[in-house]
Amino acid sequence: MKIPIRNLFYLLSYVWDVEWEMEWASIDANKSGDALNLLARILTISTDRVIRRGLDRGYKEVSEELFGIRGRIDISSTIKRNGFAKARLTCAYEELDHSVLHNQIIKTTLERLVHADGLDNQLREEVLDLTHRLKAIKPIDLDANIFSKVRFHSNIRGYRLPISVCRLIYDQLMPNESTGRYEFVNITDEKLFRIFERFIFNFYRKHLNQTIYTNIKKERLGWQETNFEGGIEDFLPTMETDVSLFNSTSKLVIECKFYESAIQAKSVGNLNIKGSFISTHLYQLFAYLKNLEIKDKSILSGLLIYPENGEKVDATYNMQGHKVSIKTINLDLSPQEINNEMLACLSIFKDVAA
């Protein structure tokens, strides 16, 4: 299952919590070709913007031998270097430096992109130019945990987009030991599913005021009226909704599924015959509704959302008093049309949520 390149950034903008409307025209995703060049284009544009606005700086401790005194004297280091006899004191002081973590992540990612196979030549020149403009920043060793150490606040809110792009590039850019270059591996279906799931949640959170719901959350559920009575160990799994939308009277549980089709096929001999909706997905959603029913006095409804893959699905049922809908979203449409489809998914629940 694939997400069209021109709309990949649209989905990612919700995952990363950036304004896609502001970025759309400048990025021109239609000309990006593939995921590597799309991400590189986003990174070059957003990094250039950060540089023009002024790179962030932070205080870093410097240790230096001086004839005078600056900051505090490091007595032990001065003694080890026989500094008192030479009249040279080892001093530790703080100095403003551009080599703060978020700048270092961008600089190191750009250096890797320069050596990435498949990068458009013009983009490579732009990436190389940015590394020269960031020459005062020291690169660092990147690892999967370093990105979570960046703490965004109002002074560096412009860094959110380039740092988010750097994280995805880090995940997908693999070193080739034989050539010394980097290869961009395709984004896996599992990662695309996570992108799709986060998009659904953040879309409804951002557009909550355009719905009949007032709150949104992921909801952890236990198995209601269930007690462990014996055996080796209790292995019942914890349940967690992808999205729970609710107001004072009703709740909608949404499950996001990134599958080739919402319908599972049945094989009869050499023939593949359309079968039914994927049973495990319906069972999962229904289990959430039935367990919520015991402790939640709201009117409960359910929604399964799939990406559309050549066949539109739009079905609604009443299941033991719960309205349940199964719908597909066409990710090949324009961003505004996807917006409209996402909001239209909720329209059938207006009567139960009133």
Results as ranks from 00 to 15, higher is better:
1 M>Y: 00
2 K>F: 04
11 L>D: 00
11 L>A: 01
14 Y>W: 05
18 V>L: 02
21 E>Y: 05
26 S>C: 06
28 D>S: 15
30 N>Y: 11
34 D>C: 01
35 A>I: 11
35 A>P: 08
37 N>H: 06
40 A>E: 00
48 D>F: 12
51 I>T: 06
51 I>R: 03
54 G>T: 09
67 F>Y: 00
72 R>P: 01
73 I>H: 06
74 D>I: 06
76 S>G: 13
76 S>M: 08
79 I>L: 02
80 K>C: 05
81 R>P: 02
84 F>W: 06
89 L>F: 01
90 T>E: 01
92 A>Y: 05
92 A>M: 13
94 E>A: 10
98 H>D: 04
100 V>L: 10
102 H>C: 11
104 Q>H: 02
104 Q>D: 08
109 T>Y: 00
111 E>R: 04
112 R>A: 08
112 R>G: 08
113 L>F: 02
113 L>C: 06
116 A>V: 03
118 G>A: 04
120 D>Q: 02
122 Q>Y: 13
129 D>P: 00
130 L>T: 00
132 H>F: 13
133 R>I: 15
140 I>G: 07
140 I>M: 07
147 F>N: 00
148 S>R: 15
154 S>E: 06
155 N>T: 15
161 L>K: 04
164 S>D: 01
173 L>S: 03
177 E>H: 13
177 E>K: 14
180 G>P: 00
181 R>H: 05
191 K>D: 12
191 K>H: 13
192 L>A: 08
200 I>R: 09
202 N>S: 11
205 R>S: 08
214 T>I: 11
215 N>I: 09
222 G>D: 11
224 Q>C: 01
228 F>H: 07
231 G>F: 11
232 I>D: 15
233 E>N: 15
233 E>F: 15
234 D>Q: 14
235 F>M: 14
240 E>N: 15
240 E>S: 13
247 N>S: 02
256 C>N: 14
261 S>C: 10
266 K>Q: 12
268 V>R: 09
268 V>M: 01
269 G>I: 10
269 G>D: 12
269 G>T: 05
270 N>Y: 15
270 N>T: 13
279 S>V: 13
284 Q>C: 06
287 A>W: 06
292 L>P: 08
297 K>Q: 14
311 E>H: 12
313 V>A: 07
314 D>Y: 09
315 A>L: 14
317 Y>L: 02
319 M>I: 15
321 G>Y: 05
322 H>V: 11
326 I>C: 03
329 I>M: 04
340 N>P: 00
345 C>T: 03
349 F>W: 01
352 V>L: 04
353 A>Y: 04
354 A>N: 03
